[in-house]
């Protein structure tokens, strides 16, 4: 579990913020605005991109070529954000994303990384035993699928473009987007139709 911060850490943070404010480095209003902007990013952006890619081949090609451009085409600013790469699953290949060195995560299209993504166990295990981790979480990967574990070590951020599930023929973009969760975009789960 993500343990709550200790009281002494809360005090430490406020001492630092107070010192930075005294020197005019940051203000309370700027902190609030920064947090609000971070709070606005959510997996709905990534889900929208994928749903559109399942329906529109031109959009799909553009998104695979330049993920950053695709995000901006949805009206989300990528100014200052690392470039976004999109990894295409096929009938024979699936991608799953991790950052073993820290916690690099495509925040622009997914929001805050969840606790498990930053955990020592996920970071350590997914490169070594990805099939076991995925099976434990209810998404076993068939033996004949090539699993590509993507270790996000440097300047790019990555999201997965999964396969469109069978049984969704004729669905609208909104219906398709509802199938695409954060976990699907990280690759630890596959899109599932509602039971």
């Amino acid at each position: 579990m993500s343990n709550p911060a200790r009281a002494e850490s809360l005090e430490q943070l406020e001492r630092l913020v107070a010192a930075l404010m005294t020197k005019g480095v940051v203000s309370e209003a700027e902190l609030a605005a920064q947090q609000a902007s971070t709070d606005r990013a959510s997996p709905e952006i990534g889900a929208r991109m994928v749903a559109r890619a399942w329906l529109d081949p031109a959009w799909r090609a553009m998104m695979l070529k330049n993920g950053t451009e695709a995000v901006e085409a949805l009206g989300v600013s990528m100014a200052g954000a690392p470039p976004l790469g999109v990894l295409e699953d096929t009938a024979r290949r699936h991608h799953v994303i991790v950052c073993t060195l820290c916690s690099c995560y495509p925040r622009a299209v997914l929001g805050y990384p969840p606790h498990w993504y930053k955990s020592f166990s996920y970071r350590s295990r997914v490169v070594r035993e990805p099939r076991m981790v995925m099976a434990e979480w209810g998404s076993p990967v068939p033996d004949d699928i090539e699993l590509r574990v993507v270790d996000s070590t440097a300047d790019y951020r990555w999201m997965v473009l999964p396969m469109r599930p069978a049984g969704t023929e004729g669905w609208s973009e909104d219906q398709l987007a509802a199938l695409i969760t954060r976990d699907v975009l990280v690759g630890v789960a596959l899109p599932k139709l509602p039971a």
Partner: peptide, 14 residues
């Protein structure tokens, strides 16, 4: 990581 050498799995890293 040769714990599961029967799979065609890959690591893709920057």
């Amino acid at each position: 990581f040769p714990t599961d050498g029967h799979t065609p799995d890959k690591l893709l890293v920057e």
